[in-house]
Amino acid sequence: MATKTFAGKIIEINEEGYLVNASEWTPDVAKEIAAEEGIELTDLHFRVLDFIRDKAGSGVALTIRSIGNSGIIDIKQFYQLFPGGPLKKASRIAGIKKPSSCV
């Protein structure tokens, strides 16, 4: 398993760049992963990331629709916040596993 230094910490990542241990995530780690994706995180991004991390912790498969129903943002804003593959990018930045949902 590969490792990478984010925010001064050595963190284990898988071959697709997702964190292996969600517990190693910090907001600063998120900022650096986001920078790799060309995204500068705002408070709104972090609110979405918190929602995603909560959802992942509960074991429910993450879907675009559930983010649209989160009450934080609608689906259109989600695409604007994380352009070009929002569910995957947001999951990677949130330090959780790659989403396995088709919707």
């Binding site: 498969a61 879907t63 675009i64 629709r65 559930s66 649209g68 609608d74 689906i75 259109k76 989600f78 695409y79 929002p86 949902s101 919707v103």
Partner: peptide, 18 residues
């Protein structure tokens, strides 16, 4: 149950994504 939306909502999801 699988979070698959109805047709109308699905169309909206697709256009929301461009």
């Amino acid at each position: 149950k699988l979070d698959i939306p109805g047709v109308e909502e699905f169309l909206q999801m697709i256009t929301a994504g461009g």
